[in-house]
Design a protein around this nucleic acid. Structure first.
Lengths: 145, 145
DNA sequence: ACTCCTATGAGACAGTGTATCATCTTAAAA
DNA sequence: TTTTAAGATGATACACTGTCTCATAGGAGT
């Protein structure tokens, strides 16, 4: 199995143990489905995906598991003005951000430069435990000018 | 009246005229309520706010007006990992960012450090005209740990 | 007054996410 | 092994946000 997935799995296990929770078949299915997904995904896509590729897991369990994986740092939110929440897993991708054209809505992706790290100590001084961050630029793309 | 609000009002009027629409009492109420709001706001807050401070405008009209003001460039979306869309008016360019607790949803605000400026040339080299940016941290706040 | 187009409110509707609760499972104690 | 307590799950009801439809109202020009 992919080394990176094993690492993420450990992350999840550590989190669960810390909370006194177990890695059940339900949670495992959600984890597997998430890891099998490329790019961004929505919760409802997972509901369908789990039913198809894994075992039939109820919506309640999927939403619960997603929240746990979020807190475990296995996935992160990528909200960008859509009507529903989007996620992506953190593992194989280099951290990237998005610039969105306010006219046509298309995205440009660009790599993280680590510039935001200076904010972390500020937040942690306030007792805020940082799990991740997103940087969104908005503007007008080349085609729309 | 605030000079900036007058300017925004003109923006809206130009847009409406261009579309062959009228500045009705309903639209005006929504506009006024938006301009009277500080910081971010959600659509449903406007529904209540209009009823309280302006005239009783139906939800349908408010959502419709919001979309128009969005296209007119009077407000813009500020997407967080939230269940509903948030907006803010454009004239009041905020220089702060947000960290959101994934457990309780509360926000911590922090000032912009200008760290993101290194991204601008990268984007502009691609022909992307930057209008602004938002930085979102997510994690777990002090109270929720 | 007539006509055409826009504006509006009421309410039905769909989608996303949450809360409840009865039931099942598991780990560990006895 | 049996008991027990806590966590896990699914079904389902529910709340909320946002959209759509449709009947009616209103304004501008003829």
């Amino acid at each position: 199995m992919d080394q990176r997935i094993i690492k993420e799995r450990h992350k999840l296990l550590r989190y669960l143990e810390e909370k006194g929770l177990r890695l059940t078949k339900g949670r495992e299915s959600v984890f597997n489905e998430v890891m099998a997904t490329h790019g961004h995904f929505a919760a409802e896509e997972l509901v369908k995906g789990c039913k198809e590729h894994q075992r039939d897991v109820s919506r309640a369990t999927i939403y619960r598991s997603l929240r746990e994986m979020l807190e475990a740092g296995v996935i992160r939110e990528t909200a960008f003005g859509e009507k529903h929440q989007h996620y992506e897993h953190v593992y194989d991708e280099t951290l990237h951000h998005h610039a969105r054209c306010v006219r046509c809505g298309t995205f440009i992706e660009f790599d993280d430069l680590g510039e935001e790290d200076r904010y972390r100590p500020l937040l942690e001084k306030q007792g805020f435990k940082v799990l991740g961050h997103e940087l969104h630029f908005y503007g007008i793309c080349h085609a729309c000018q």
